[in-house]
Design a protein around this nucleic acid. Structure first.
Lengths: 259, 259
DNA sequence: ACCTGAACACCGTTCAAGT
DNA sequence: ACCTGAACACCGTTCAAGT
């Protein structure tokens, strides 16, 4: 459904790759896709995604709101461009030789990008394109990390999708907790809650909640990042471990070679 | 930061558990939290999240927009209540004895819930509470699936977080592709793209893209669900496999120290 | 007490007009 | 050609007023 240009690509993709030429010739007071996206990102970094309105972006550039529409078909398109620009990864990246370590580094790069621009996670979904420049770059790096693994291309892509999805949702959860604040639950609140989260209705969770292990596991409470990072690594290692096992041929099928 | 009621719980949590009493006595023409949330969900199911405006919800109930504000502090709170109500899981669920199979079933329940109300994924983040009724229910079931596993409570919670996060992002990706449509890329578009996604700049991805394996792996193109489901199961099995290995005492890090 | 009516500030987007 | 000005339809939310 994404509007396709005469080039056969979604407009945002064409723009991001610099293929959507701005006609030129005329006054040209200096507006461009790049400047618009950069201004929008600056606002998002400073004041959050909600502050990114067409009027605010235009104003910060010294233009009227409507001038933006000559470069961007609407706010949706601007958001897509912002999203891709924000998940940039360092120009030079050297990945370790061991695929497990390389995958950890790669996951860390993705995670860092989200930490640098957390508002990316607030962009309405259904607007991500795997064909945008930075998505392509990240995918390429991911495949590089798995270079030596005896897997089919489709499987490698499956792995990097799984890992990047995992990283995404981990950061998302992290941010949710950070501003929702488990702190919002006072001891009295917990007391009240335990009247309704009873062992007979929630036999497995109730004991954990009462022991304080449920909310404590949701980090932030301590203010330290330890809990968060531990949770992040826990899941990542689960995936890596599962992949390791699969590669060594001892999944459900059977036990393989002794290599 | 979430506004806390005098009960010591976030307002949305109190409402969802039925602890936020509506004062009563007076005209009372029949509005209630439940009816408002149900009406909003009906609109979201039929026309998408964007169609859920305070005015639309009120109108569908035959009330004025402002009447809603007596029950709900604002749209944010309404969205939180909708979210929790939407991820409901069947009343009676029997999980298989084997934890691997139980985890698969559990993940499937979560996945079904998102499929039934895909707009849930469009709700702005930072508004999820793990203390809402259905979240608690789902967590309880997840712990039930892991009942017999020799893991600490914190670790079990880590596992169900990892799995539910994975399921969430899988469905999200799936929906993105469904309405973004890889179809939007014509053969000419792919041609154009290959001029910029070159083997020298993207050594690992370019060959895959040219072979058609990149976009094909992103399903939908075929219209069949096979690709999607295969991708979903691939990642899930990776996690389960990793967990299995961990439980059996041989993590990826210490491959050397045999079982 | 519950609900309404009118109003406010703001948003994305259009269109015709200026240079 | 690029940009502006005025205007439109819509949104969430407020406040004082009705019953």
């Amino acid at each position: 459904m994404a509007e396709t240009t005469e080039t056969g690509l979604p407009r945002a993709v064409a723009i991001a790759w610099g293929m959507q030429e701005v006609p030129q010739r005329g006054p040209n007071r200096g507006l461009s896709h790049e400047r618009i996206v950069a201004a929008a990102i600056e606002i998002a970094d400073a004041e959050g995604l909600a502050a990114v309105t067409m009027q605010a972006v235009a104003k910060s550039l010294g233009f009227t709101t409507m001038s933006l529409y000559r470069y961007v078909s609407g706010k949706d398109e601007l958001l897509r461009l912002m999203q891709d620009a924000a998940v940039a990864v360092p120009e030079k990246v050297s990945l370790p030789g061991d695929w497990r370590e390389a995958l950890r580094v790669w996951a860390g790069l993705v995670r860092d990008a989200f930490h640098a621009h957390p508002w990316v996670l607030g962009i309405p979904r259904g607007q991500v394109s795997v064909l945008m420049p930075n998505s392509v770059r990240v995918a390429d790096l991911g495949l590089a990390a798995l270079r030596d693994l005896p897997l089919a291309d489709e499987e490698k892509i499956g792995v990097i999708l799984t890992v990047s999805q995992y990283v995404t949702s981990t950061v998302e959860l992290e941010l949710n907790l950070a501003d929702e604040g488990v702190v919002a639950v006072t001891p009295e609140g917990l007391d009240l809650l335990s009247q309704v989260v009873t062992p007979d209705r929630y036999p497995h969770l109730a004991p954990v909640l009462l022991a304080g292990n449920y909310l404590e596991t949701q980090p932030v409470a301590t203010g330290a990042d330890e809990g968060i990072d531990a949770g992040y690594e826990f899941g990542l290692e689960l995936i890596i471990s599962g992949l390791d096992r699969r590669v060594h041929g001892q999944s459900a099928r059977g036990v393989g070679d002794g290599a």
